[in-house]
């Protein structure tokens, strides 16, 4: 937790490590509630996006090798950033599977699919998925 590091122009102010289990929702919620956001709308955006990504990674990436590192900070232009770093073969397989581009009702599953992706896109200015030798990184810039 804590500390400050620079990578790709981003200064990370705080962070935490999670196993990637559904039971960690309350812990993750406390983590996002404690982020040093500049104002309440920013806090609400980072809370919605953070919880949505955490939810998706728990559902589609776990089990994770070495856990999930989450960092919060700002980029070179001062914009808030939220980074998720993890290693998961399952997540890459899930990404390759066909899925809805736009939100749509899935009669078989009796639920809406694709809402989370559009939420994250519309609540942030940029979402990047980077794949490297040390694993996957999802970087959200607000």
């Amino acid at each position: 937790m804590g500390g400050q590091a620079r990578r790709s122009g981003a200064a990370y102010l705080t962070g935490a490590i999670f196993i990637g289990a559904r039971a960690e929702f309350p812990d993750f919620e406390r983590f996002v509630d404690g982020l040093p956001c500049p104002d309440e709308p920013s806090r609400a955006r980072s809370r919605l996006v953070g919880l949505e990504l955490f939810d998706n990674l728990v559902s589609h990436a776990s089990p994770l090798r070495g856990g999930m590192r989450v960092r919060f900070g700002s980029d070179a232009e001062g914009r808030m950033t939220l980074l998720f770093a993890f290693r998961s073969r399952r997540f890459r397989a899930w990404l390759r599977a066909p899925g809805p581009v736009l939100p749509s009702w899935s009669p078989g599953e009796k639920r809406w699919r694709g809402l989370g992706l559009i939420m994250v896109r519309n609540l942030s200015s940029r979402v990047e998925h980077r794949i490297g030798p040390s694993g996957d990184r999802i970087v959200v810039t607000f």
Partner: peptide, 14 residues
């Protein structure tokens, strides 16, 4: 309500 995920939104829409 302190947060609403896509899962909750999907329930509302349905």
């Amino acid at each position: 309500v302190t947060s609403l995920s896509s899962a909750g939104l999907g329930v509302l829409m349905a």
